[in-house]
Design a protein around this nucleic acid. Structure first.
Lengths: 220, 220
DNA sequence: ACAAATATTTAGTTTTGTCTAAATTTATTT
DNA sequence: AAATAAATTTAGACAAAACTAAATATTTGT
């Protein structure tokens, strides 16, 4: 597969939001900042290779083979994002461009070893799920800490209250978006929550827990 | 710079062994497994971009600008090799192909951070020196441990005596080619040498020290 | 249902990097 | 110093992936 073919497959996958429905030529052209005629050319080629179902004027969807390819690219992209953030200390919002390049590196052994090295993460720094080698993965949902049960693990992906005071609190306690957080215990009495974050444990008040969004894997 | 241009620059650099002498069209074609006519085409393009000095029928050499480019690619290649061996546990002889791909990733920030993460290594797993960001680097030489002074650091790159007994000794003591080794102390009495390797210290006999080659940076 | 608007495809070019075959230059023999 | 051999370049062609402009389908509005 060429680099360009991989980019098309990935774009179709994302536009279909992981589902198999039909995507229009123009949607792909807009997303990829290219011309519709270029898209048509490529769709013919991908169709010849059995990666997409393409009917003239009727849009396109990924075949089984195309979906497997897409998931493998998504897996690589997200694993590299974890590497960049966890190991190289990139901020979660500056990794995309580099991961776009790294995702095209061809070596199954590399990805296996990287996965292990990173501790087989299930989500990337944006909280998006990482497909397994076999192409399986759970969907993720965004919920407030206060809405989640004990034992949940997820990634901090947003705040409800973006007041300066709250952001300052997060900063002082070294909680950043992109950090992985586990819910250890919930106190019925005052709604406070014990969490593990960045290798440390701490307790946060109900007020904090109701203002911080976690991206967690759907429970089935 | 395109991927292909980078490959040509790197090939010219390696064929000239880091020096500025003139390389023939056929030598490049052989090395890159391509046709001489393709090489001629590319040399014209690289010459237009001021990356090489090219005179028809007279061979080619890198310009200052070309040499800087080459060193930056070599730096990336070798840093990725260190990553693959030190962090992902690849064997030193299986990293080349993957590093050939990784060396083309474009991000200065990535390479800076990778360099730091790896502890700013001076040599790659083959013992070859890693150029600095500024393009400076020392040559390396291959010497027996017994020939080197206290304080030297280098990479194990070969054995003099490849008898089964010797290889078994290395294996039992978890010394592999590609490991980094520092000479801590030398005992005049029996020629034995204290070394640090793989985060451990150990003492080896004169006989071992005279059979294990280290690739070390030239002292000046 | 039909005209207008929009979406998509086709046809024909362009650029990059490659190739083959022919022409030219340089090197080597005798 | 020719003649031959080897190396190199030129000319012309091709495939991939993009583009523009024109043609054709589909959808929408009335």
């Amino acid at each position: 597969m060429t680099l360009s073919e991989e980019d098309y497959i990935k774009t179709i996958y994302h536009l279909a939001k992981g589902e198999g429905h039909s995507i229009t030529t123009n949607a792909i052209a807009d997303q990829m900042e290219t011309k519709p005629s270029s898209v048509t050319d490529m769709l013919k080629k991908l169709s010849d290779k059995n990666l997409v179902n393409y009917k003239k004027y009727k849009g396109v969807s990924l075949t089984e083979k195309g979906a497997i390819t897409a998931l493998s690219i998504v897996r690589k992209h997200r694993l590299w994002e974890v590497f960049l953030v966890d190991k190289l200390d990139f901020a979660w919002d500056e990794v995309h461009e580099v991961a776009e390049q790294l995702e095209h590196i061809k070596s199954d052994k590399l990805i296996d070893k990287l996965d292990n090295y990173l501790g087989n993460p299930r989500v990337d720094p944006h909280g998006d799920p990482i497909p397994t080698k076999e192409g399986a993965f759970k969907k993720s949902v965004k919920k407030l800490i206060s809405e989640l049960p004990v034992g949940c693990q997820g990634v901090c992906v947003g705040v409800n209250d973006s007041s300066a005071a709250f952001l300052k609190f997060l900063d002082k306690n070294r909680i950043s978006l992109g950090d992985t957080l586990t819910i250890l215990e919930k106190e019925d009495f005052d709604g406070s929550v014990s969490i593990a974050i960045n290798e440390k444990e701490m307790r946060i008040s109900d007020q904090i827990a109701s203002n911080l969004f976690l991206e967690v894997l759907e429970n089935k």
